[in-house]
Design a protein around this nucleic acid. Structure first.
Lengths: 233, 233
DNA sequence: CGCGGACTTGATGTGTTTCAAACCCGGTGG
DNA sequence: CCACCGGGTTTGAAACACATCAAGTCCGCG
């Protein structure tokens, strides 16, 4: 609760047309003409680990396209604990509910350093009235959000702690079998297990050579071994 | 897999304008004029318990508005098991992905006898191009689906088996504190626990007088007691 | 009447939680 | 430079909840 909110730094105005990840992002299929409809600035923002993009219940002023890094969507439990309900990476959209004028349902926190584009709600509404393209994209994003949510429930909420951890690594791993991981407390909040169990499992996988920690929380993984663990008991 | 698909019976053509639950359903804010855009029949269908509205991977021909009864959305696990990822009731929409032309991501199965309206995909696409109203509703439905998914994860995937069962009852209970419940196997699939544990917990709650089984799988519940259990250990 | 399916119950084992303590490491200040 | 602290991680031992395997019961139904 007392986490510093410092760490959100303005980086400049976004140049959407020339954006490197546009084809996978919300503005994917906007046309030249569509861009002229944007009359509010889209800011590029750098968010430091631990800082929030927005908080649950906030007035929805904007939604965010993640350009790099990792964002966790957190929901707080009545008992004070927290549960991470989704993880967002490059190309994903955070705070979609802002497009509907609904208050944010989660708190979005940067896990790794995050580069993001802040798109004001007014821009979305304007575009979504004027162009079918964006409307389709919005629907697709919602669809994607549901799929992710279901996947979280099925993949990360089922089976033994070891299997869950293995599946989590498999969802985070890159093409070189490397993986930027995060704190054990967060692992627990994602998988619905305790911090200690998360730590035990990760430590054990390191000992077994399935994981190799090149730097703190940076792992090289044995993909095959992880897959075997993912469905085993 | 071999569940009979019998039990889906045509009941007639829907009269959307006069529909009793329209204000809560997908067609909530369509105008008189909008209805004239519907050129394909909307069927009213009765689905018997255990029968499917559609199967995972099916070509998306239609989406469904649930008018009464209870529908489960099921996802199958690699190991052959299954997990129920959402429960739908009167006013809810099943198979939203059809509006996007995406294949169904779940299998939708009637738990209690279900009365449903089958809305062909073409109708949705036509309407969604012609009227902002429906478009907004579609977005809202997606939003709702995500909220449900998150609630499933947080409420039904956290805490002890007893707490989860209590929360499940609280989500199903009606204003008279009555509750149409369902098989223990399904309870397990919803909560991520085994059939036996589900049975044990329900049986124990019956003995404690928290639940009173008036007829098979029809319960009168002590709401206060359930709420106490819901966050307790 | 006897069968099958869903529910209940018991005994046992194991995985996970819990409570505690030790550890490692980067940072701070003497 | 080193002592010291604090947060995150690891590890241990004991308690507990849940899974598992295996009967047994209670229906409805042919």
């Amino acid at each position: 609760m007392k986490k510093t909110d410092i760490g959100a730094a303005w980086r400049g105005l976004a140049n959407c047309k020339g954006c490197g990840i546009r084809e996978t992002a919300l503005f994917a299929d906007l046309t030249e003409g569509d861009f002229s409809l944007i009359h509010l600035p889209i800011d590029e923002i750098v968010v430091a680990p631990g800082a929030a993009l927005y908080h649950v219940g906030d007035e929805p002023q904007a939604l965010y396209t993640v350009r790099s890094g990792l964002v966790k969507l957190v929901q707080y439990l009545p008992n004070g604990g927290q549960r991470i309900v989704r993880l967002l990476r490059a190309g994903d959209t955070a705070g979609l509910e802002a497009a509907l004028g609904e208050p944010y349902r989660h708190t979005a926190i940067a896990v790794h350093p995050v580069l993001t584009c802040r798109i004001p709600r007014a821009v979305i509404q304007r575009l979504s009235e004027e162009t079918q393209h964006l409307h389709q994209q919005l629907l697709r994003r919602w669809h994607q959000a549901v799929e992710r949510a279901d996947a979280f429930l099925v993949e990360l909420g089922t089976g033994s702690a070891r299997a869950r951890v293995a599946r989590l690594f498999l969802t985070l791993i890159d093409e070189q079998d490397d993986c930027d991981f995060f704190g054990r407390e967060d692992v627990g909040a994602v998988l619905g297990i305790t911090t200690e169990t998360a730590s035990r499992v990760v430590a054990e996988l390191k000992r077994q050579g399935v994981l190799d920690e090149s730097r703190p929380n940076r792992f090289h993984c044995d993909r095959a071994a992880l897959r075997a663990l993912a469905d085993g008991p």
